[in-house]
């Protein structure tokens, strides 16, 4: 009995009832107080759970995190009192040796630019046909909060509908680089930067970043040197080139 009742509640809340059924449901809500009480009690639980797993909530959490880091003081003033360590005199010597060792590794390695310094993904807003807009929204939501693996499955679904869509191919490739599936990413990017789409120079830039992440510095330079000066990617390409040389 209750299973049937909850089925009906779920169908109403998910707006899957036919018009006549919906009208009958609403009539019963207005007339039958025990039915309405049971429904609103169910709804109060359902809505809390629905919100808990929604993509909007994920985006909201991301916005709060962004605001938090935006209004955070400089790192050196944020140390909590409990984390301060007091040194005994003999420990200064040990600390100095540790610093020397760290310094050696830092200077040995930090001359090379890293992927993370250059791979800044702007929030995306996909241009889509109405029949795929729901999937595109999910792709956007996941991509924009850094859930690249999930975003990827939605880009694949979009590409099944429109296999030649350069926009979807481009974002799929950037997501692939993020999750270190380099071979697939590099192949897809190669098709894009050799093609005629508006994503060609963007794809070349991401291809260079993919090589940077793989520490294939020679390939990074080769790709960057062929980014035309007339494209928006030229300036950052030059910056990365000079950091590499």
């Amino acid at each position: 009995m209750e299973i049937k009742g909850n089925d009906l509640f779920i169908a109403y809340l998910e707006e899957t009832l036919a018009v006549a059924e919906r009208n009958a449901f609403e009539k019963k809500l207005a007339e039958d107080s025990s039915f309405s009480e049971a429904f609103y009690e169910f709804k109060s639980i359902y809505k809390v759970l629905e919100n808990q797993f929604s993509e909007e909530r994920v985006s909201f959490v991301e916005s709060v995190k962004k605001a938090d880091s935006k209004f955070r003081p400089q790192a050196n003033t944020l140390q909590s009192k409990g984390k301060l360590i007091s040194f005994k005199p003999w420990q200064y010597g040990v600390a100095a040796s540790i610093l020397l060792v760290i310094g050696f590794f830092l200077f040995n390695d930090s001359n090379k630019p890293t992927y993370i310094e250059y791979a800044a993904h702007e929030d995306i807003s996909l241009t889509v046909r109405s029949n795929t807009s729901k999937i595109a929204k999910k792709a956007e939501a996941n991509y924009n909060v850094g859930n690249y693996k999930e975003a990827l499955s939605y880009f694949d679904a979009l590409l099944q509908e429109q296999p030649d869509n350069a926009q979807f191919q481009y974002y799929k490739a950037t997501a692939l680089v993020e999750i270190n599936r380099f071979e697939e990413a590099d192949n897809l990017l190669k098709v894009l930067y050799n093609g005629p789409s508006v994503y060609a120079s963007k794809a070349k830039w991401v291809a260079a970043l993919s090589m940077l992440k793989q520490e294939k510095y020679k390939e990074v330079i080769n790709l960057l040197e062929t980014i035309p000066s007339t494209t928006p990617e030229y300036k950052k390409a030059q910056k990365l080139l000079s950091a590499l040389q």
Binding site: K47, V48, E56, R57, F60, V64, D68
Partner: peptide, 15 residues
């Protein structure tokens, strides 16, 4: 602060 903002969001969104 983050927890509080999230609770307010949840309450506003569902209730």
């Amino acid at each position: 602060v983050q927890e509080a903002l999230l609770t307010i969001y949840d309450q506003a969104k569902t209730k």
